[in-house]
Structures are given as C-alpha cells and as structure tokens.
Design a binder for these strands. Structure first.
Lengths: 123, 123
DNA sequence: ACCATTGTATTATGTGTTTACCACAGTGAT
DNA sequence: ATCACTGTGGTAAACACATAATACAATGGT
C-alpha cells in the first residue's frame, strides 16, 4: 500500500496513522521486525527525522518497541493491539455518525449510504 | 455550536469545515448575512486574518459572496449548496467505509457498528 | 578485528501557519 | 459632513514542521 501523504496535515501524524493501521489490521504481525528508519523514510519519500518522530510516538503508544542497535519490532502484546483496534473503530464510527446526523441525515439514511458505498467481502 | 479547534490541523482549514457545515446543513440560510470577519474571529478566539483566509476560501467554492464594504452573505444558489452537501456525504461515507474495510471489518459488521453508535432521530 | 547497519542526537535552513498591529476605501445611518 | 463599521491589504514576529547533513555508540555477521 502506498503512503499517499497530503499537505493538509503534518506528515508525521499521517505516518503514525498509516503505520498504526498496518499494525491493528494485522498486516504487520505481532513480534515481527519492521524496516529500518532510513528504509521506511526512503519508501515514504520522507526525511528520516520525520519517520523517526512517527515511530517514537508509536512506541509511546506501546505498539512498537526498540532494540537499541538492532532494529524495531511490533509489540507482542495482543491486548494493546486489540484495544487500539477497537478504539479506532469506535472513534471513527462515532465521528462519522455525528457528522452525518449534523448534516440532517436520519439513522436510516446513514445506513443506506453505508450500504451503498460499502463493498461486500471478497471471501 | 462551539468551534472546538484542535492543534493537529491548520486552524483555517478547521474554520472552513465548520462554516461549510453550517451552510450545507441549512443552519445558515441561503442569502442570509453572516457576521463580520472581526466578529466571527472574536467568537472563534482566532485572529481576524485567519478567519479572513477561511472565508475567502469558502468564497472560491461559491458558498459565500461579498458585498465589498457591506458584509458577506450565504450564496442564494441552492444547487451549489446541494452539491456540496451531497459530495460531503459521499466522500465521508466512502472514506469511513474504506477505513473500516481495511481494518478487516465486513460490510455487515460496519453496518452493525453504525447501528450501535447512531442515534435515532428526535422527531 | 572489521564493517555495514541499527537507533539516536544535533545543527542549520526553509517554509507554512498564526498572531498582532496598522492602514485604506467604501457603505450606511445619524 | 461625520462616524462607526465593512472588507481588504501589508508587515513583522513567533512558532511548528520538514528537510539536509552530520555524528555517535552499539549490534551482528563476516
């Protein structure tokens, strides 16, 4: 998946969101080693310092941990990941729902929109 | 409604979103006069220059127009407002739906979440 | 022992955002 | 005519963000 950075938000925040999504969606397996700061920065077309900032924020959240001169790894704590996943889903749903209500849409209308724009799972 | 500005995005963009929502939700009636730049800035606890920037962007979108030394008004062009409203709803729904799918949620699960977090209309 | 690679830290520079402050021209009410 | 108010424009300063370019210490593999 590409990085798709936009100019309307600080890059380091977008990097945080992107990597966080990789982790909580399971795309990055718990305990697995991730690419180096320099390599990640290179792929995202971003300065190493900026990537470093994003990674250390994710560390504060407990989603990553560091082995000083060896590399960085996804946490093995499944609870942390699951919590992040749940709060992500809840927060986004609440925000979405609130905005649509404020627009004047009824609950039924909101559901209809989601029905329309959501694609069925490809089993 | 309060302004609720956060530090993770440029203020002028948040002001644009906020006022745009006031317009497309119908809270600000088409053709009606809005408060002066200075007054709006004061209420939002923001510098007049910043509010000015947001308003001129909304003007580019056709949602506002200016009478040079008289004040600013909501557009009377209902099509412009309705288009903005529809694209707002579609874009947000699409983005929400995509993110939830990426999280691994099925269409049915997404609908369930919306059901859970959406409140019934208060007739 | 050597060396590439790791995370980390520092300094400097450019850019964008926000703010404060000031000035100008046109309108409308008095 | 006067005056408060309107939108608009400019300048300067402070700050955060992003980048470039280095440097350093510790690890792992050779």
């Amino acid at each position: 998946m590409s990085w798709e950075l936009t100019a309307d938000r600080p890059i380091y925040l977008q990097l945080i969101d992107h990597i966080k999504m990789n982790i909580i969606s399971g795309e990055f397996a718990p305990g697995s080693k991730i690419l180096s700061v320099r390599e990640l920065a290179s792929r995202a077309c971003v300065n190493p310092n900026t990537m470093q900032r994003a990674l250390s924020e994710l560390e504060k959240l407990g989603l990553l941990y560091t082995q000083r001169t060896n590399g960085r790894f996804i946490t093995e704590n499944l609870d942390v990941i699951e919590n992040a996943r749940e709060s992500f889903a809840k927060n986004h749903t609440k925000k979405f729902s609130d905005r649509m209500s404020q627009l004047g849409l009824s609950k039924a209308q909101i559901i209809n929109l989601v029905e329309e724009f959501s694609e069925e799972d490809l089993q």
